[in-house]
Design a protein around this nucleic acid. Structure first.
Lengths: 248, 248
DNA sequence: CAGTGGTCTAGACCACAAC
DNA sequence: TTGTGGTCTAGACCACTGG
């Protein structure tokens, strides 16, 4: 937390900042301090924005921005007419970045390598037709790929692409570039549903990730839509011991 | 996406909204449309805020707010002097709410039940001393609890509490209320590190969650700090088939 | 009905970074 | 040096909602 000093004139300034100007960050920090450690415990009704603006010696817009961001953190509850109240139990949330495998691997300092294991275009199985909302008898592009970190298996990718919605995929060569990178370049802004679970290693994981049959596998499923149409569904299996971490 | 109409005077208004006033949401929606489906593909340099303000017929502050939020979505990259550019690959992130077990269970419509399985106060093991930064020879409160959904095992909680930092915990009775609920009421605003992984069922999971030995388990580890001191560390094991989902 | 937050405006100064 | 975003201000009107 930044150093804050209350001055004789009632203004607050960030230590080391040019005085005379109250920034919204200073207000934010001070209000957070009062909520998390000070007099404004859970359930407290805060002063109105106007009052706070007077107390801090700044414009109401500055208070508003500070409070709006504290609201986004899930610590307070704001309502017209009722005012701003400290939540009894803060709404906790964690944010995870969803990186490209390449970036994920290279961030660890390891060398990244990609390899296409399998490619075919069969009739879409029933579960996929349901997931991607495909017509009966539709075919889909099925790719199995491996991602390596310093030569060691890192992630197994089992992907299906809806070639009705994305016919360019049929002619694209996925030998050198992973389908995810191609898709991000082709359909950069999409809607995504992602889920995480623990599964047991099957034949594919045993073959490609050096798991033993039945070993626990950290598994991700992801479905992507673009302009209302389902584009692709992918299953990602990670090497043993993979862990996803966040702070909040 | 909301309906947008461009008017003869160059202003944009939300369909059904009172005309004559351009809201930041309208600006946002229109800019998003241009980025995700229109002329402003990846890499495009956007007009300056001032230019956009003129084009939309609104104040620069309105444009600023619209762009700031699009920036938070990870779609654009903003820099002084350089301007605002559409990211080549959007920075994707998923947000997960971290609910109380009780809320998690009750959200599914099931009845929630809690039970304290085990309680003791041994010397802290080495790995815990390292994790919570405890003095050599320190004792810690160890609790094992079960959470049920409609009578079926839902989550196994293996928790350690630092009683040096939180001495009230020693005298509290955890028979009726889970330690998490007590902690949230006692230490509402804390720093958290959380991680997810797939592990193999051990003795505890076999005993309490009806897993078979070695079964894949979705496992969460969480460490919590308050005012610089580590308060508690908990391991959460979920029933078979548990899945965590988000959209973005 | 009236209090409170939600948002817009016009103008201003500043900080940073590319040149 | 200068262009661009970052932020503050003072004032205003509006929308929601509790009493």
């Amino acid at each position: 937390m930044a150093d804050i000093c209350g001055r004789a004139d009632g203004r607050f300034v960030m230590a080391g900042d040019s005085p005379g100007r109250t920034t919204y960050r200073v207000v934010q920090t001070e209000i957070l301090r009062r909520i998390t450690g000070g007099p404004w415990g859970p359930g407290t009704l805060l002063p109105t924005e106007e009052d706070l603006a007077q107390q801090f010696g700044c414009a109401r817009a500055t208070i508003n921005r500070a409070l709006r961001e504290i609201d986004e953190l899930g610590l307070i509850d704001r309502r017209r007419k009722s005012g701003t109240r400290v939540r009894l139990a803060p709404v906790r949330q964690a944010r995870f970045e969803i990186p490209l495998v390449r970036a994920e691997v290279e961030a660890t300092g390891a060398a990244y390598r990609y390899s296409l294991v399998h490619r075919e275009m069969p009739d879409a199985p029933d579960w996929l037709r349901a997931r991607l909302n495909l017509a009966p008898g539709a075919v889909a592009l099925h790719l199995i790929c491996m991602h390596f970190a310093d030569g060691a298996p890192y992630q197994l990718e089992d992907r299906w692409i809806n070639i009705t919605a994305l016919p360019q995929a049929e002619d694209h060569d996925f030998d050198l570039q992973g389908p995810n990178e191609w898709l991000i370049a082709t359909v950069p802004f999409s809607e995504v549903e992602i889920s995480f679970e623990a599964t047991a290693a099957g034949v594919a994981e045993v073959t490609h990730l050096n798991h033993r049959s039945g070993d626990p596998v950290f598994h991700v499923k992801r479905t992507t839509w673009w302009q209302g149409a389902a584009i692709t569904h992918v299953g990602l299996s990670y090497r043993a011991g993979h862990r996803m971490t966040a702070r909040y």
